[in-house]
Amino acid sequence: MAEKRLAAFDIGGTSIKMAFLTTEGDIIRKWSIPTDRSDSGARIVGDIARSFYAELAADGLTTVDVLAAGVGAPGPADPIDGTISGAVNIGWQNGYPLKKLLEEAIELPVFIENDANCAALGEMWRGAGSGAGDVVCVTLGTGVGGGVVSKGMIITGVNGAAGEIGHITVEPENGFLCNCGKHGCLETVASATGIVNLYKQEGKEAPDARTVFEHAAAGDEAAKRVIDRCAFYLGLAIGNIANIVNPAKIVIGGGVSEAGEALLLPLEAYVKQFTFPRAMDVLSLEKAQLGNDAGVIGAAYLAKVMTV
């Protein structure tokens, strides 16, 4: 009898990445479908179910052959009832009952987690954090996402809001306004958007963060200062996280991390400056390895540990 597989769904604002995986975390097959955000996202669950059943049938299988499904979703996920809050980019209202609706639609156990937390689980299980049960993942994209893994499990907090690394206050006075309503959040100065914010503060314009890094490489002193400030703010936040949770690895991912050593070298220096020496003794800074697969691999891991 063939080993049961895991199903994984990573719900994004543009597309939903879907996959079948082995219980060891190997991807059997993956695909994606568009995210239909019309009618406040009311069609998303049905679209996932139809695609899931079609792909399962294509393999000559039924739900009997699937152990469970894990889901990464935008917004805080309630660890108890699997509801989603704050997923405004796809139209779901606070308390959207994603777990309940998906379990009814695909007739399997479903386990829900925030998408950034799933990416952290994926990197811990099969990526840059492999072999370490205590990992912090920081994703630098349009915003700053993150997840904190301790002893192989995500720290969720009381209502799923733990690990909101992008909303650590790093500029307590005169900081940029964040989408969350606070000022001075990490993502206002360390995301792709934040780097452009800092460059504008230098009196210069750039269409995106990549251009700022290119200007720095060409000798632009303002761009160099921006990258150093970005690394400073990130190092400050990461150092304080390390002091609290004492991880073995900090994994840096997302589009901004593609700048490579131009960001990571100054970041390492600032992390060392702000981290308690004993915590620093066991800490390494790693670049994420799984790319767009991190979310489905982490969602599968969640389904596995919650059922096996």
Rank of each mutant, 00 (worst) to 15 (best):
T62S: 15
D220E: 05
Q273M: 10
V88K: 11
L290P: 14
D208C: 10
I154V: 15
L101V: 08
V71R: 07
L234H: 03
I195M: 06
P79C: 04
V245A: 00
E261R: 13
R229Q: 15
G152H: 14
I84G: 13
F9H: 11
A248I: 01
Q201T: 08
A132C: 14
E173F: 07
G295F: 05
A288Q: 06
V138I: 11
F176C: 01
L267D: 00
D39H: 11
R278F: 05
A206G: 08
G181R: 02
F276R: 04
Y301L: 04
A269Q: 14
P79G: 02
G86Q: 10
A190C: 05
E113A: 04
A119H: 12
L267W: 13
K224N: 09
V66K: 05
V296K: 10
N197E: 02
T142L: 04
A303G: 03
C118D: 12
W31F: 08
K200W: 00
D59W: 13
D293C: 08
G131L: 09
G95F: 15
I11F: 05
C180D: 01
A87H: 07
A7R: 05
R37L: 00
D81C: 03
D220F: 03
K224S: 15
K99Y: 07
L302Y: 13
G131Q: 07
R37I: 08
G157A: 00
I16L: 07
V149C: 04
L264Y: 08
L140W: 14
I27G: 02
I106D: 12
P266W: 11
H215R: 12
V251G: 01
I244D: 09
R210G: 13
N246E: 11
I90F: 13
